[in-house]
Amino acid sequence: MSETPTNGSDPQPVVRLREIHKSFGSNHVLKGIDLTVHKGEHVVIFGPSGSGKSTLLRTTNLLETPDSGSVWFEGKEYGPGLDDEDHPKGKARILRQEIGMVFQQFNLFPHITALENVALALRRVKRIPRPDAEMRAATYLDRVGLLDKLGAYPTQLSGGQQQRVAIARSLVMEPKVMLFDEPTSALDPELVGEVLAVMRRLASSGMTMVVVTHEMGFGEEVGDQNIFMDDGFVVEQGGRDIYKNAQEPRTKEFLRSIL
């Protein structure tokens, strides 16, 4: 396993996780996960709750530091690294500026407006002056269809609108990868569609995406790599036919149970 990610005819992956282990106390959540994501690829991760899929997503931008394993992003090591390799490590904060993340609970900042939510990181992280930052923020709010809501505070928005603001807040940083952590799970059923529509268009625009979701329809539609996780392992992965023609009994059982 000492092969470097740039080897071979394969173009350099955007994200590469190798042998990721993570425990919370005595609970071993990730048991040696590998994941490679190429530019423009859409990875869909599904599985029962507690299977480690959210934790895996959160190790990708180091919101969760793995106990061991390698977190590569565009040819640079950010994670703890593998024992038999020694690479200089990048800073987690730099990594996070390149990777956007959308949360199940939206996590918009409730004390500032939609516009200010989207402009905050431009101003504080990229040090863009306020008028320019707000212009760019307004442009991104328009892309998710919320230009008329830029003065609204999060509590004045529906769940679907909040999640679209959250997507704009990530996109405005022009990330190379977008991570979605069950983005529609906290939404009322009638609001799921508007968020999925934005994600679908984002996918067809060529954005590299890793999506943890229970929306199997989304995986069938845009998933290039579809991964079924259970109990800290990748049980099965494949193309879009995985949802109809799963090979592993555990995958079949899970897909049956949610349909």
Partner: peptide
């Protein structure tokens, strides 16, 4: 909420920035 800190960190804000802003 802890999600607030996570969201701020996820867009690249530092710990002091997250605390102050």
């Amino acid at each position: 909420a802890d999600g607030q800190r996570q969201a701020a960190m996820s867009v690249g804000m530092s710990r002091p920035q997250t605390f102050v802003r």
